[in-house]
Structure formats: C-alpha cells, structure tokens
Design a protein around this nucleic acid. Structure first.
Length: 354
DNA sequence: AACTTTTACAACCGCATCATT
DNA sequence: AAATGATGCGGTTGTAAAAGT
C-alpha cells in the first residue's frame, strides 16, 4: 500500500512559490479545473509535484479564500469547534467559509493556544489548568484584601459560562458559609504551594464540599449562557463527528465523584475567559438553548457543557450585526470579556440548574 | 545600527483513507 | 483480496518579518 512521496522525484522544485509559478498554476486551474494533481504540474509547465501544487492552490491561491485577520466570531467558532472536534482542522475549516485547515491550524497554534494557556485553560482538553496560572498571586491577593474569599465578587468579575462552574460557585459559596476555616486553610495552603496542581488537604473531602443546595439562592451574581456563536444544531452536528474519539475532552472533572478543593479553586481562578455576555442585562438568563441538566458525568452529558468554551460571542455566527469588529486586538478582546456581566434575578431558582 | 530572539505562516513530510485496477 | 495510485489530513519545519536588546 505504501508509495513513495511524489516530491522525492528528482528535478522537482521545493520551497516558496514564486509569483510566476502562482500565475501558471492559477491560469491552468482556471481553464482546466483542479483535477488530477498528479499530471497537473507537467501540463501547467511547473517543476513541482502535484502534492505541492494542490497545497498551494487549496491553501493560498484558491479565489474563495478569505485573507486577513480572524474575526472575533471566527475565533470563537474555532475554539468551540476545537473543544468538540479536537485537532480535526479540516472539519473545523469546513464550518468556516473561506478559511483553510492549514490557516486555522496555524492560527490556533500561534494565537488561540497561547491565549488559552495564558488564561489557565488547557488547549487540549479545554479544561481549567491550575498549573498554567500563577495561583499564588491570585489567592494571596484575595486573602490580603478580604478575610475570606468573596465568591460573589469572583462570580462578578470572572463570570462563568459553564453550568458546571456555576455549580462550583454554589458549592464554594456554601463551603464558605458553613466551613470558612476549611476553605481559608485550603486557600492558604494553596498559596504556599504555589500553583501545584492536585494539592488537596486531606481534611477537605468531597463529602464536605458536596452540598447543600438550599443556600443556592443566595448566589445571585453570575452569568449563564444566553447566546452562542454556533447554534445548538450546528454544534450537535459537529459533536456527532467528534464524539466518539473526543468524549473525554468534553467533561470537566466529574463533580459528583471527583470534586476536590483543587478543582473548585481551579475552576474559580482560572476562568477569566469563561464569560458569556449579553449586551442587554435584561436578557433572560436561561435561554431556550440552555440546557441545564444533570452534571453527573458523561452519561448525563449536557450540550451546554460542551459549549462552555472561553469567551463566547455575543452574536451568532450568521448574525449580520457584529459586536466586535475584526480589527479588535487580543487585549481588547480580553478586556471586553470582563466588561459584560449581568445579574441573576432573585426569582431565578438556581436549584433548577443543579 | 547591529545583533538576537520571537512570531507568524507557508510549505513540507509522512501517514491514512478511499478509489481503482 | 491485494496492489497501486490519488488525495486528504495533521504534525512539523523553515524562514521572513517583527520585536526586543
């Protein structure tokens, strides 16, 4: 079945394409179509292998390729799709008209990946990663300024998209109320240990953290998904392609079984971009697309947990309105993320989510 | 201004898959 | 069924440009 690479043949040019070569290739394909890459270079008068010609055409010369910076919506779409599909660049590219898999792959590796890492998100699993953050500075700041962790403030400034994180917020809040010394002790230990992952004080058991839903209504500040870059249908479709091989990528730690202080704190402090914003604070918190179901594990997989990717766009992909124009910088995007938040109405029963 | 380092991206390579013989 | 060829895909590399010293 094996075959020798076509580029091994002698006399074939490699490396960057010249304008003349581009012109030859473009002219040939425009008059003959992009068929039979094997014979194309010879017919077009190019000293290139067919593979090289195909790549040049599909990644650069194709007339329908959209050049230039990725828009905010495109970037969000990539992140969301990557959380579902993984490194299936061609599948991702299929949902981004005008963008090639190579371009998306490069953009991921040079921009998005770094930004996720910077924000404490594992670019592979899309889960929070404690070891990517300077946890000590965050925690010390919190401890210095307040006697106890102010969960409400955290929720307000680092708004949460993920219902699972909302659950975490609730749990942490409950812990704060019921066992403040334990929480404080853990925070202090975490500070000392400087962002080492999986550090969990022995006295802090999951049973202590799992809790009491009755105080949930006291948690009145948060964010919840209200819009999405991709429609649920689109994501479902994408999920269908990636589910089998990437199921583990979807889930945050199983909170029912594996809830630890580490994951709690981790989720809290490393979610600066898990923001779902609405330009209109009065927008109902639970959209019709929201689907807060049991979070117990993959069997009870909720689609919104899949959608819980960093910084979701306030506008749908196909929306004619653009919330942030494509020239926005990374910094602008990040600062934007922290600007918009809204309150959960008192009447909203958070228990429904949990 | 010169040099070094970092960034961005085009292009290559090897493997997988599918179609054809 | 096996061999071969064509194409697609994802990881990696090479290099020009930009940024930093």
């Amino acid at each position: 079945m094996g075959r020798t690479p076509c580029c091994d043949k002698n006399g074939l040019k490699k490396g960057p394409w010249t304008p003349e070569e581009d012109l030859k290739l473009t002219n040939y394909i425009q008059s003959h179509g992009p068929a039979n890459w094997h014979t194309l270079p010879k017919n077009a008068g190019l000293q290139r292998c067919g593979k090289s010609c195909r790549l040049r055409w599909t990644n650069y010369l194709r007339p329908d390729i959209k050049r230039g910076r990725f828009s905010f919506e495109e970037e969000e779409t990539i992140i969301q799709l990557h959380s579902i599909l993984g490194n299936k660049w061609s599948a991702i590219a299929a949902r981004l008209p005008g963008r090639t898999d190579n371009e998306i792959k490069n953009y991921w590796n040079t921009h998005i990946r770094k930004r996720l890492l910077k924000n404490g998100i594992d670019p592979v699993t899309h889960a929070p990663r404690l070891d990517f953050l300077d946890l000590s500075s965050i925690l010390s700041s919190t401890l210095c300024n307040q006697s106890l962790l102010n969960v409400s403030n955290l929720l307000g400034t680092q708004a949460l998209l993920n219902p699972e994180l909302l659950r975490l917020a609730h749990t942490l809040l409950s812990l704060k109320q019921e066992n403040p010394e334990i929480l404080l002790q853990y925070l202090q230990q975490s500070q000392l240990c400087d962002s080492q992952q999986n550090l969990v004080p022995s006295q802090l058991q999951p049973s202590q953290l799992q809790d009491p839903i009755q105080s949930a209504s006291t948690c009145t500040t948060s964010t919840i998904p209200c819009t999405s870059v991709l429609s649920q249908t689109e994501l479902m479709q994408a999920a269908g392609e990636g589910f089998s091989s990437n199921m583990t990528n979807f889930s945050y730690p199983n909170f029912q079984e594996n809830l630890t202080a580490s994951t709690l704190i981790n989720a809290f402090v490393s979610q600066p971009n898990y923001v779902h914003c609405s330009p209109n604070p009065t927008v109902p918190l639970v959209s019709e697309n929201s689907n807060f179901q049991s979070l117990g594990g993959s069997h009870n997989f909720s689609f919104d947990s899949v959608r819980s990717t960093p910084i979701s766009s306030p506008t749908p992909l196909n929306s004619s309105s653009t919330f942030i124009n494509s020239s926005s910088t990374d910094d602008e995007r990040e600062s934007f993320s922290s600007l918009l938040k809204f309150e959960i109405p008192e009447s909203l029963d958070i228990n429904d989510f949990l």
